[in-house]
Amino acid sequence: MASAFPEGFEALDPFVDWAIPTEKARYAKRIGSTMDELDAFYDIAFPLLKSGTAHLQNVSMEDISEPDKRLLWLFCSLVTVAFSVEAWRQPRVPDSGASSIDAILEPAV
């Protein structure tokens, strides 16, 4: 079976559901996930961030492939979960009540 991601990033296949195109949906997934799920995603994705960034810097955004698009979105999700894993140790922002993120305009990809 072919990988959902570019060559070299096959380890991310179990986390393809984190390749989410909008900020609001990424935030909702983080809030709806357990710390075990966030940790599992982070532990696999974070070590690939540097090579993923290098790979994506060589990709034209005008004709980006679907695997590259999924890689980009997955790393956007990694940014969304990083503080939860690294600092807060919980999916929600501590002492924030019912916070939400409402993006007015999403980046075009």
Rank of each mutant, 00 (worst) to 15 (best):
L72Q: 06
P107D: 08
R70W: 02
H55N: 01
G32Q: 06
F15Y: 13
Y42H: 12
F5C: 02
E37S: 10
S60H: 06
V93K: 07
P21L: 00
D17P: 10
A25L: 01
T80N: 12
S51D: 13
S96P: 13
K69G: 06
A2I: 14
G32K: 02
T34M: 09
P14W: 05
A4I: 04
F83G: 13
S65T: 15
E62Q: 09
M35D: 10
V59P: 05
D63A: 07
L48W: 02
L12K: 02
K69A: 07
M35L: 13
A103K: 12
S65M: 07
W18S: 06
P21R: 00
D39K: 10
A45C: 15
L56D: 04
R92D: 12
L49M: 05
D36G: 14
E37R: 06
D39A: 07
N58K: 11
L72M: 08
S100Q: 14
Y42T: 04
I31E: 14
E7R: 13
A11D: 15
Q57A: 02
A103H: 13
P47K: 07
S99R: 04
K24R: 11
K24Y: 06
H55A: 01
A82L: 03
T80I: 07
R89K: 14
F5M: 02
Q57G: 01
F41I: 06
A19P: 05
F9E: 07
R30E: 07
I31M: 09
V16N: 11
A2S: 15
K69P: 05
S84V: 05
A40I: 04
S65L: 07
W88G: 03
L74D: 08
I44C: 13
T53M: 08
A98D: 15
P14K: 04
A54W: 06
V81Y: 01
L48M: 11
F41Q: 08
E66T: 11
V81E: 02
S60I: 00
S77M: 02
I104G: 15
V59N: 03
P67E: 02
R89H: 15
V59L: 02
L105I: 10
A2V: 15
R26L: 03
E37V: 03
F83N: 13
I64M: 11
L38K: 03
T80K: 08
A103W: 13
V59T: 01
L49K: 05
W18H: 10
K50I: 07
K24G: 14
F83D: 15
P67S: 02
L71Y: 05
S100L: 14
A25V: 00
P47L: 09
A11L: 12
